[in-house]
Write a protein that binds this DNA or RNA. Structure first.
Lengths: 327, 327
DNA sequence: CCGTGATGCCGGAACGTTCCGGCATGCCGG
DNA sequence: CCGGCATGCCGGAACGTTCCGGCATCACGG
């Protein structure tokens, strides 16, 4: 039923009546090949179901066929990074590449390029990788020393602004923010977006900072302190992933039902936000797509199709749910 | 600082004063090499930081360096499968292998072997893949026609029994089960485990079946029907992933606070279970580890280290939380 | 002393691709 | 008619590994 032997370049060449070199040139668009020859080779290749042998290609090109991927260690269990990593793997597979996860402090493994997810300015592994001289793409900007060859970023500050507009339209007059420290570009953007909106609308910026990997209790404490300090707060925006869901029971205990007495929103969407009672308004960061884009950008850089310094914008989306729709 | 050029087999051989064949034999334990020569080669290889070139190896061995992975299509967004897939990718990377996701009904891509996650008996893609004649490992048994070369499975029935023991010890007298149909081996095991326990303990097996990919409303309706039919039910076990979390608000509305008026448990742990209010007792299926094991088993089969027909047990764990601890 | 078999080691070919250099052919202006 | 150049195509080498077959050397029994 299927072809007995996998078709190789030589099979295609012979069938098309040309040499392997010409076949190779025709298929890759390199060298000098006449239009008709090229068409014939492409036709034959399609008919035979020819798929280039990745191993042979990488061997010849002296590339490893592998890219390295690093994400902040504390967060590898998070759903966001799971999806992100998965996106990178998909993008790599589409380009015939493998992905190696870089976690330990060991020396850099043999890879053709690097993807760094949300690089923290004070992560020693990140600084070492940035200094390795390999083509590098980061998801969100690296705020430390050095510069990546490519950056995939999202308009966090603007989207937080849109979220604030929505809260305002839903009747919130005293919004407050709980955010992770500014070590990551994302947290800084959320923080900055909030402050900018407050300034522009003449509101006092009520902010509480928690560590990047704060456990639920810390988030709860931060919320309690904010509410004790300013009982008039009527909207709460949470930066850290999952944090908003942890606050629901606490707010209920305090007699403040989310969506009725107080608006609640998260800067990171997840299943927990959808399943919370009430479902929580959140920003969908599209982590999988971000991962795919990081890989794509890296391969463009590796192929020389794109100059170092490129920046790509990855769209994100505000998802409005019951927690911010005042009944 | 680092080595200028990556060490190749030839570098190692020359440095150790042997031929490339001998070096290869020494490093892989094949052929005939004296103990001292072998030791010397290994020493030199370690000193030079020699890493075999995967591309060259795969090229020579006529292997693709890729394994195929298929998981039930409806569930690719689930956290469980995300973790499972990730585990397979890790296991593959450890063996210098790439992973291609097989989703569409297109013809089988070029791979050395297959991993099928929770194969459904009536999934046409699964039956086609099983018939492809490739080395295949499934996670959970395949209940349809044909047999995989390797199976990684967990003791679901036994663990459901343990869960039932726990519920019973917490005072539950009338437990009920909501479970997905028997198309997957996992669902069948959960179902069977429940019935076996009921029989052994002289309880009436109260079961409601929902489709494998039932939306939240279906699960809620099933629960409502069960509770309407038998108001004396005092413990509810949910099969489908995430389902238990969907029931919490519903039960609250009915005036049955989980953990107080009624015990609630899930057969699949997830972040949603941890974050629910109250946190929900669940069975941690260790999806990531399961994925790693599937890949490992497949590579053992590919290498001929293990005979076809092998079965590996992957431990799972009951995690007790507030939803089943009667105050 | 020869035949036999085990042991230790090796050279060369092959896997499928890319790429460097080269060889015709045809066209142009001088 | 010749030199130069562009066009279209090609052969061969190389990437790093594995593996088949073969060549010494040595021990041992006849």
């Amino acid at each position: 039923m299927g072809p007995d032997e996998p078709a190789t370049l030589l099979t295609v060449a012979k069938t098309a009546g040309v040499s392997k070199t010409t076949a190779s040139d025709a298929l890759r668009g390199s060298g000098r090949v006449s239009a008709q020859t090229k068409a014939r080779v492409l036709e034959v290749a399609a008919a035979l179901g020819y798929v280039p042998n990745g191993s042979a290609r990488h061997l010849r090109r002296a590339s490893t066929g592998t890219i390295g991927l690093h994400v902040p260690e504390v967060l590898t269990r998070s759903v966001y990074y799971m999806a992100f990593v998965f996106g990178v793997v998909q993008g790599a597979a589409d380009n015939d590449y493998d992905v190696t996860l870089i976690t330990s402090g060991r020396r850099t493994p043999r890879v053709d390029g690097l993807v760094l997810g949300d690089p923290l300015a004070d992560d020693p592994i990140v600084t070492r990788l940035m200094a390795a001289g390999l083509p590098t793409v980061t998801c969100e900007r690296f705020t430390g020393a050095g510069r990546a060859d490519g950056v995939v970023l999202s308009q966090h500050a603007e989207t937080v602004g849109a979220l604030m507009d929505h809260l305002s339209a839903s009747g919130a007059a005293r919004p407050a923010l709980i955010v992770a420290g500014d070590a990551s570009d994302w947290a800084a953007a959320v923080h900055g977006g909030f402050r900018a909106w407050c300034e522009h609308h003449g509101r006092e910026p009520l902010v509480r900072t928690v560590p990047f990997d704060a456990p639920p209790e810390d988030v709860r404490r931060a919320a309690l302190e904010l509410l004790a300090l300013r009982p008039e707060i009527d909207a709460l925006v949470c930066g850290p992933a999952g944090a908003a869901a942890h606050l629901v029971p606490l707010l209920r205990e305090q007699g403040r039902v989310p969506g009725r007495d107080l608006l609640l929103a998260s800067c990171v969407d997840s299943q927990a936000m959808q399943l919370a009672d009430p479902p929580i308004t959140a920003i969908d960061l599209r982590p999988r797509e971000a991962g795919v884009r990081c890989a794509e950008l890296l391969f463009e850089l590796l192929a020389g199709h794109t100059r170092p310094g490129a920046e790509r914008v990855q769209p994100i989306e505000l998802v409005v749910r019951a927690s911010t729709r005042r009944a």
